[in-house]
Design a protein around this nucleic acid. Structure first.
Lengths: 343, 343
DNA sequence: GTTAATATTTTGCGCGCGTAAATATTTACA
DNA sequence: TGTAAATATTTACGCGCGCAAAATATTAAC
């Protein structure tokens, strides 16, 4: 396990009694060499534990085994957990995931893509920032490197997009709220970064009209990713203690709802379904923490398993076929209603 | 900006009228070439936007510009946010951070180190899993690659360790709790993975004894990282509605406290300081979400700015000096008491 | 036992760049 | 203005490996 010290494939070839290119073949696919040589190689591997220099490998390989994974914000447990499952799928497929977060904003997103470019990835999975994204530069990247978008769509960019069917899930939750109490108002950022937020707003309006209710939007100021903070402070200003046309608030996402719940609690406003409650709050996403809010947050889950799996599958087949897609695929997965105590 | 297409340094040298090795020097340090040549290069760079092949660069460079960053669990917003600030510092220093999470457990931690090994990083910043870590293998790695530990200590491994002074912060919070109400019990996992947890337990016991109170430990079952879940379910079993010797619970970390708070709420137990409250709950860490619990969580913050900064600084000086430390440094930073509504 | 077909291994070359040593140029200073 | 010191550039070589084509070994077929 620690004889002299093998420093390259040449030397390893020598000690294993096989020619260097055959060793190379073995490392690229152990099945591609005869069983008898494979055994010799693996025996030698036991005594010397040599590993090919990854830089030399990637310099010469036609395509690297790297897959880039870019998410808008790793600090958000939601994306952290998606990233984790995608990473797992990539590793299982024998590729090497490179995880980057665009938390710094649109310029960082591009800078992430630039880093990936220099790493010459086989393909890239990108959850873009959304409306803030520098679409032209992202598009230019996607022309160079096979790219699949997920979570947030950028029209026409990349080989495919996989996301959530906001129409469906918002419809589910609006219907539920109307059926079980007063029709909801919609609490959101005035200028959301995420295209899903816009879709949800429109879906809310449409659902309300379909049910013959007048839609009400509460559009609050706020920038960046500190949704809880915004939900809290703007909730205090615009919701708590105000006389609103309804006692039910549907938030554009769970993190806003978490802030709003906190503001309600702090101001002594009782949230929930029961008789003692004066406010109902619902969210969207089924954020990892929404189980533990007080009360638990009623929300709509996204089918992230499906999104992750399909995204990785298409990226892999894209790599394998070495071709681009003839038509850009766009698939939305349906979420489910998650009922908890808050509405 | 898009003339012919430069594919290597040779060609770029040609179009810029400078010799290739000089170009190489420029990319390693733009200041190292004469101002006049620098201008020529940068002019050419504008028209051709060429970038050196990172694999070829790293294959030949004596040391890469990569710094590995391994954290136990990126899904925890706490580590996600530390990782983010550390990444920022690394980038600012002109290095390239490689972020990996050991969420999968001790074997994944080692596998992360193995991946890093093959990338030949200049150095590695490691927040180990803790007691679960395969110490021998981590130590072997740290002998090969300059490694600095943070957050959780593994005795004698790596060049230095930077963490929190649990004695200090637990003392702060125990004193506060005793002074403002009944002395606390300590709520924790029976078999914690994290050495900080053990230190906190001991610090709690010591602090209580110093104040002439009898320490009480509530040690619950539970494995893995789903602390909120454990805090919730075990809290329901062991705390809520039980007749305990005190009405104050100090949790080993905020995530347990978040679960416990949720359980209290769900069972109609009023948490806080006021007269209507029957339970006080405090945590430790100042987790990003602890502001938004109901009520807000009283806790002890860690000085993660200091930990991040010092860790990165030492790793950088370690790289620069190209030497190991003669004595292993171990520095603990003091946290602060963060008072909110829960205790 | 021979030959053709096939699977495997080897030969030979080049990838894109870092870097030491040799050479040329610039700068500083008398 | 001349010279030495400092700085910049060039020459020349090697890093560790992938890959195509050629050579060889193995298997199958008759």
């Amino acid at each position: 396990m620690s004889n002299p010290k093998i420093k390259n494939m040449e030397e390893f070839a020598a000690v294993s009694g096989i020619s260097r290119p055959t060793i190379s073949k073995y490392f690229n696919d152990p099945e591609s060499v005869r069983a008898s040589t494979r055994e010799k190689i693996e025996a030698a591997l036991k005594n010397h534990n040599y590993r090919p220099n990854i830089y030399a490998v990637n310099q010469n390989r036609r395509h690297t085994k790297n897959i880039g994974l870019v998410v808008p914000n790793l600090t958000d447990p939601f994306f952290a957990s998606i990233a984790r499952t995608i990473e797992g799928l990539i590793v299982k497929a024998g590729f090497n995931p490179l995880l980057l977060s665009s938390h710094g904003g649109p310029r960082q997103e591009i800078s992430n893509l630039d880093s990936l470019r220099s790493i010459k990835p086989a393909a890239v999975l990108l959850a873009p920032l959304g409306r803030a994204s520098l679409a032209d530069e992202v598009a230019a990247f996607a022309r160079e490197v096979p790219t699949v978008l997920f979570d947030a769509n950028l029209e026409g960019i990349g080989e495919a997009f996989f996301g959530s069917d906001n129409d469906h899930s918002i419809n589910l939750i609006v219907e539920y709220l109307c059926r079980s109490g007063e029709p909801p108002m919609f609490f959101e950022l005035k200028t959301p970064i995420n295209p899903n937020a816009v879709k949800r707003r429109n879906a809310y309006v449409a659902a309300m009209e379909r049910l013959n209710h007048k839609p009400h939007l509460i559009q609050v100021d706020g920038q960046g990713w500190n949704f809880e903070e915004i939900g809290f402070s703007e909730g205090e200003r615009r919701v708590i203690g105000r006389s609103l046309p309804t006692n039910t608030i549907l938030c554009s996402n769970d993190r806003l709802a978490i802030g709003l719940l906190s503001a309600a609690y702090e101001n002594g406003v009782h949230v929930g379904l029961g008789s003692g409650a004066s406010l109902r709050i619902a969210g969207h996403d089924d954020h990892p923490f929404s189980r533990f809010t007080c009360p638990g947050l009623t929300t709509a889950s996204q089918d992230y398993n499906a999104i992750a799996t399909r995204s990785v599958d298409t990226i892999l087949s894209l790599i394998e076929s070495a071709e681009r897609m003839d038509v850009r695929e766009e698939t939305l997965f349906e979420g489910r209603l998650v009922m908890r105590g808050s509405a």
